[in-house]
Structures are given as structure tokens and as C-alpha cells.
């Protein structure tokens, strides 16, 4: 018997897993570096945060929930900053963005 808490946690974890798989498919499928970062920077952030929120719901009130909350907060702050850092490095070293109609690389 699944309780309601477990059902909510399972739905959140399933949503997070869907977004993580979508992010990896975008990483493999998009044509160039900048568009690949579009897929990973957004889908990974929300997917991992959803999984961690599911774990928090499953855990209930304890100190582990506090740690999971800090982990979620850190991912929300750090993931866009990391994406931005790689993108700025690539742009400043002169990697040309892909335009529509060009060959994929």
C-alpha cells in the first residue's frame, strides 16, 4: 500500500527523471555547443530539483530534509552560473554560434 506521501514523492521523482532524460537527449541531438547548453542548463536544473523535492516529501521532517533543502538551493544557484561560465569562455575564445541552415557540428 502506497500512502499519499509516497505517491506524491513518486510523481515528483518521475517528473524529474523525465526532464533529466530530456536534457541528455538534447545534449546528444542539438547541432552546436550553445544550443546544447540550452538543453542541459535548464532541463538538468529543474529535473534535479524535482527529484530532490520528491526526496524531501518522502523524508518528512528531519535534519536530512534541511540538508536536502540546502542541496536544492545550491543547485539553483550554481547550475546557471556554471553554464554561464562555460558559455562566456567559449564565446570569448571565438567559437562561432550555429546559424539556421548550416551543417551541424
Amino acid at each position: 500500500m502506497f500512502s499519499i506521501i509516497n505517491i506524491i514523492a513518486t510523481i515528483l521523482i518521475a517528473g524529474g527523471a523525465f526532464f533529466m532524460v530530456t536534457g541528455v537527449v538534447g545534449l546528444l541531438r542539438f547541432p552546436d555547443f550553445y544550443t546544447r547548453l540550452h538543453a542541459t542548463g535548464k532541463c538538468d536544473t529543474l529535473g534535479e530539483v524535482l527529484v530532490i523535492v520528491g526526496c524531501m516529501v518522502y523524508q518528512g521532517w528531519s535534519f536530512i530534509t534541511v540538508k536536502l533543502f540546502f542541496l536544492m538551493f545550491f543547485i539553483f544557484l550554481a547550475n546557471p552560473v556554471g553554464t554561464h561560465a562555460i558559455m562566456k569562455a567559449a564565446y570569448l575564445t571565438g567559437l562561432k554560434p550555429w546559424k539556421k541552415g548550416e551543417e551541424r557540428r
Partner: peptide
């Protein structure tokens, strides 16, 4: 490669 390694690292957290 750096972007993919970053993705792998964030997945390892979960």
C-alpha cells in the same frame, strides 16, 4: 567535453 562533464557531475549528485 567540459559541458558534458558538468552534466555528468550534476547527475552524480542525484
Amino acid at each position: 567535453q567540459v559541458a558534458a562533464v558538468n552534466v555528468i557531475g550534476t547527475k552524480v549528485i542525484v
